[in-house]
């Protein structure tokens, strides 16, 4: 669940973004569209609590977040938010399953290998769990990133251009998976993209 109120963010004096309010319930999906430089990534960083807005308020699970310190923000990120980056980042010295349970570790939770295996089965990379992440193909890495974002059952899933590197078939698959998994854990899903293929699929859209 996520709600924003009159968010504003500025880079120095030259560029200031004002963002439309959003209000997303559990199991709902929102597509955030816009040209490059329109502030899509900034919006994602704001609602992902990676950057603080100049003005406005963000409610995650009905809790306001503008007044809390950086430590509590880190706590929010680990417990309630799962982010899927455009580029698949990993801890390269760890293998696939270790990268997954890393989410649990960073959230101070018990390492849930069972959950990691189930997600891997759901997303179709169960046979790659003990491989090094560098050995995986781009598509496989993308799916591992999705699984990692789901490890702590967050209430908000943020995806930054999740399909830009994929062909039509895989684009559909990834979109299906995202919606399916988000619905399963009662999470709200925000997808930031300029991918035309997704526009036709999700009705709930805003354009920056």
């Amino acid at each position: 669940m996520i709600k924003t109120q009159s968010l504003r963010f500025g880079y120095g004096n030259q560029k200031t973004f004002e963002f439309p309010d959003i209000d997303l319930k559990a199991r709902e999906t929102l597509l955030v569209l816009g040209k490059s430089g329109a502030g899509k990534t900034t919006f994602l960083n704001l609602i992902g609590l990676l950057q603080s807005p100049e003005q406005g308020e963000i409610f995650i699970d009905n809790e306001p977040t503008s007044k809390i310190g950086s430590k509590q923000k880190a706590g929010f990120r680990s417990q309630k938010i799962g982010i899927i980056y455009q580029k698949p980042y990993f801890v390269n010295s760890l293998n696939v399953i270790e990268n997954l349970v890393l989410s649990n570790f960073l959230a101070d939770r018990k390492l849930n290998h069972e959950r990691a295996k189930n997600l891997a089965t759901d997303l179709g990379f169960a046979d790659l769990l003990f491989k090094k992440v560098q050995q995986l193909s781009g598509g496989e890495q993308q799916r591992v990133c999705i699984a990692r974002a789901l490890m702590n059952n967050p209430s908000l899933i943020l995806a930054d251009e999740p399909t830009s590197a994929l062909d039509d078939e895989n684009c559909d698959k990834v979109a299906d998976l995202l919606v399916k998994e988000a619905t399963e854990i009662n999470a709200s899903l925000v997808i930031v993209t300029h991918d035309q293929r997704l526009k036709n699929r999700f009705q709930n859209q805003i354009t920056l």
Binding site: G48, L50, K71, A74, G75, F76, R77, S78, Q79, I81, I83, Y85, Y89, F90, V91, N92, L102, S103, L106, A107, R148
Partner: peptide, 18 residues
């Protein structure tokens, strides 16, 4: 070399102290 990894872990909610 691992700046990305460290930033990633921070974005995932890892504490800087950890």
């Amino acid at each position: 070399e691992r700046k990305y990894e460290l930033a990633l872990m921070l974005s995932m909610g890892g504490k800087r102290f950890t």
